[in-house]
Design a protein around this nucleic acid. Structure first.
Lengths: 218, 218
DNA sequence: CAACTGTATATTGGATCCAACTTTACGCTG
DNA sequence: CAGCGTAAAGTTGGATCCAATATACAGTTG
């Protein structure tokens, strides 16, 4: 497994992974000195990576007080899903009409990747290929600014996707829905694609709400 | 005029201003050494500021090749306005119903600030108060993630706003439209507010297209 | 005893220095 | 003379060092 080209990229990946896996808990301060030491790098690339995460909303920065892992409230979660709805609906509506043959092939390929990962019970691979699948659906719309925003929205909710995929019923449902989603894409039916994706998200957000709301923690 | 609390904030402001004013031209590489020297700081805070700008899409970064000022094509400009439409429509629809008295006061205040700046032919102040006016309209929606995205979209097109405001007719039109926009806000009519803002943007984008399209430069 | 102040310590912010990579210029070779 | 390879220069990436700010604590004073 080749290490990323630059150290700061490596640090960025590590921090993302650590936040995702809750090794770094929400609201936890990130001590630069110890964190740098842990990762085996100096503070400079660490600070640059933190700046990137700050811009994405993954960490909160206060001058002279350092960085803390961002806390995502239920309201935040719902807002993020609402924004995904606005942006992804736009892209999904346009993408199929603008897609070429290679785009369709890409979608099919990732569809199978998700199914394969699910069959092997590989959660990590399922999450990443699922992401590639969805982006392959939207990318053909040719809206790089939108894609950038959608990407950060996905990043902030990655932690919750792991929760969602823990349930076998949810996994099965996802796979079944992916099938019809891919069909709508290949049929060049943007409106239908947007509708199906909306449903897809709707279920996820409902399930997450049920998981997170009642415990009444904190 | 007090200098910002941290150097990197100062650098960030300076870079934003320089990019906005075209002192730094699109596609121009930013030499860290000379830029740091020019600003009278070291390269460390400069690099952190550049990371922030990279995340906002204002500069492009390629490892070991440095940062260049991002070029905004016409397609990019149109996409950014389309995204503003999606996001601002959402916020504008919700904001009036959720606004309190102090929110309305804020809107009125900024409305007058824009008019005052226009009366004094103060373009810079007009641009910044115009921005505060629009954000005051959207802020009450209570969607921080959306606001963050809208903010970066505004940042990327700030340079064009200066162009737009150069024309006295455009300025007059803006002031007139602001009046009715503020009235819709105070009437708690979200749908109408969204509609007026849409019109507002529509005119700007049409004017900009006319300005930028025919010259057939580059 | 509470509140305030001064001081010590921990942590972040910034500057300088060295290493790695990229690019360019130059000379060699065919 | 074209093309390639190589070396040198310039630029960025990263590490270490020092300064500035914030926090915690102890001592003092009302």
């Amino acid at each position: 497994m080749p290490r990323p080209p630059t150290t700061q990229q490596f640090v960025l990946d590590e921090l993302r992974r650590a936040i995702l896996s809750r090794e770094l808990a929400p609201n936890q301060p990130i001590r630069q000195d110890s964190m740098a030491h842990t990762l085996g790098v100096s503070r400079v690339p660490l600070r640059e990576a933190l700046k990137t995460l700050e811009a994405e909303g993954q960490v909160v920065y206060r001058p002279h007080r350092g960085y803390t892992v961002a806390e995502l409230s239920l309201a935040d979660l719902l807002e993020v899903y609402r924004l995904r709805e606005l942006l992804e609906t736009e892209a999904a509506t346009l993408a199929p009409a603008r897609a070429g043959e290679e785009d369709a092939a890409r979608v099919r390929e990732e569809l199978h990747a998700v199914a394969g990962a699910a069959a092997h019970d590989d959660l990590v691979e399922m999450i990443s290929s699922n992401r590639r699948f969805h982006f392959a659906l939207l990318e053909p719309a040719g809206m790089p600014w939108l894609m950038r925003m959608v990407r950060t929205l996905w990043d902030t909710t990655d932690a919750y996707r792991a929760v969602y995929y823990n349930s076998p019923e949810n996994r099965d449902r996802v796979l079944a829905e992916h099938e019809s989603i891919a069909r709508a894409f290949e049929a060049r039916d943007g409106a239908e694609l947007a509708r199906l994706l909306r449903q897809h998200r709707e279920h996820a957000v409902t399930a997450l709400r049920a998981t997170l709301d009642p415990p009444a923690n904190d």
